[in-house]
Amino acid sequence: MTSEVLDELVAYAPSSSQAFSMNASARAIWELCDGTRSIEDLCRELSEAAGARPEDLRADVQNAVDHMLELGLLTIAEP
């Protein structure tokens, strides 16, 4: 379950009764993670909005995705 808070997001996992906040950048990454995109796809799409080169976003996007995986906000899609 998610709730929008201006351009940010609160995600709630009923199974663990935990809630997480996402700022606008984290939200943009999380919303693009639909099971079809790779990290490179995310960087490419985010770079257009951020006005930066995809390779400059790679480390931050990877870190954010790793953190969301750790928190259970994302799971790895089966190929």
């Binding site: 709730s3 808070v5 201006l6 940010e8 997001l9 609160v10 809630a19 997480f20 906040s21 996402m22």
Partner: peptide
Amino acid sequence: CPPAQSVLTLL
């Protein structure tokens, strides 16, 4: 305080 963080603190 970012608004989403505000929600968590209020919670």
